[in-house]
Amino acid sequence: MLVFSIIASALAPGLALLTYFYLKDRYDQEPLHIVVKIFLLGFLIVFPVMILQRGMILWFGDSPVVNSLIISAGVEELLKWFVLYHLIFNHIEFDEPYDGILYATAISLGFATVENVMYAWYSQAAFGPMMIRALLPVSGHAMFGVIMGYYIGHAKFTDGKSSRGFLLLSLLLPWMWHGLYDLILSMMTHYWLWFIIPLMVLLWYGGMGKISRANNRSPFRIIKRDEEVKT
């Protein structure tokens, strides 16, 4: 019973947030089975990430700055971006800007959910610590996914050099914010909450704006509006 409670409390935040972002797809919802597959791919990339991070720690040492910016944020965001670009960017179902946000948050939340389960399993965490993880690391990964997906959506529906620029931003910006997040946690042992909470508020505020703007650029918006006018 205890094991079930631990696993359930670890799975709940990621699944709840995934449901939230899925329902935010206002005009043309994606096939649920594809979203679930991308979510499960987030599970799988945990293992190559762990292997790469372990090797890099042995190579570079355990410097807080290098660990936060390169080994943690860099490896994690690069692998998520790599999977998204190669499996989703040219997928037929990626047909509106918000889809980038949905698929990026799906893979990010899959990754964060496995991290959460591992943390809960090995630490036997109580309700309080699990709530903190739901509010911080899990939702943090979701916001990094929103940023990544927003610019991937821009790149998908923009031509020429601007497309490549947005594609580069889709990797660099979540990497930067993730690195800042990890840097605060690793270097501020006593006052980290004073910095993390404003950072999370800023990320959520910016993320909600990106979701709204991505939905507003949907080509299905006009179609749906015309259908509503006719009825």
Score class of each variant (00 low, 15 high):
211 I>Q: 10
66 V>M: 10
38 I>V: 14
207 G>Y: 12
20 Y>S: 07
2 L>K: 15
65 V>Q: 04
152 I>S: 06
27 Y>L: 06
152 I>R: 13
109 L>A: 11
198 P>R: 11
179 G>E: 02
59 W>F: 11
104 A>G: 04
171 L>M: 02
94 F>A: 04
193 L>P: 08
35 V>I: 13
139 S>Y: 04
207 G>L: 09
71 I>C: 09
77 E>S: 07
131 M>D: 10
210 K>H: 09
160 G>L: 06
175 W>L: 09
20 Y>T: 14
171 L>V: 01
33 H>R: 14
141 H>T: 07
23 L>A: 13
228 E>W: 12
182 D>H: 13
197 I>L: 14
76 E>N: 02
124 Q>C: 00
174 P>F: 06
41 L>V: 08
147 I>G: 01
33 H>L: 13
98 Y>I: 06
128 G>M: 14
90 N>V: 03
75 V>H: 01
181 Y>A: 08
123 S>P: 01
77 E>V: 00
115 E>K: 05
198 P>I: 11
143 M>C: 11
62 D>Y: 06
163 S>W: 10
196 I>S: 08
35 V>C: 01
218 S>D: 05
117 V>L: 11
101 I>N: 07
82 F>G: 02
83 V>I: 11
104 A>M: 08
211 I>T: 13
160 G>S: 11
148 M>A: 09
2 L>A: 14
204 W>T: 02
227 E>H: 13
154 H>E: 15
113 T>V: 09
165 G>S: 02
177 W>Y: 15
64 P>T: 03
163 S>H: 01
158 T>A: 14
46 V>Q: 11
228 E>T: 12
227 E>Q: 13
16 A>L: 15
223 I>F: 12
122 Y>F: 14
20 Y>L: 15
4 F>G: 13
8 A>H: 06
8 A>G: 06
4 F>Q: 12
70 I>A: 11
204 W>A: 00
177 W>R: 05
223 I>P: 01
184 I>E: 06
148 M>N: 09
132 I>R: 13
182 D>E: 14
137 P>W: 05
85 Y>A: 06
144 F>R: 00
65 V>N: 04
81 W>G: 01
151 Y>A: 05
226 D>H: 15
182 D>K: 10
95 D>I: 03
173 L>Y: 05
76 E>M: 07
22 Y>L: 04
130 M>H: 07
106 A>W: 04
90 N>D: 15
4 F>D: 10
175 W>M: 01
93 E>A: 07
180 L>D: 00
218 S>Q: 03
148 M>I: 04
212 S>D: 13
132 I>Y: 11
168 L>E: 00
185 L>C: 04
80 K>T: 04
108 S>V: 06
102 L>N: 04
100 G>V: 00
194 W>V: 02
169 L>W: 10
28 D>M: 09
129 P>H: 01
124 Q>V: 07
223 I>A: 11
121 W>Q: 15
116 N>T: 03
108 S>C: 03
84 L>K: 05
86 H>V: 08
67 N>D: 00
47 F>H: 09
31 P>M: 08
10 A>Q: 03
144 F>H: 08
71 I>Y: 02
58 L>C: 08
107 I>K: 01
156 K>D: 07
118 M>K: 09
46 V>F: 15
57 I>K: 14
150 Y>H: 07
172 L>T: 07
77 E>L: 01
144 F>W: 10
83 V>P: 00
165 G>R: 12
211 I>V: 15
16 A>Y: 13
142 A>I: 03
53 Q>C: 00
104 A>D: 05
199 L>I: 11
134 A>M: 10
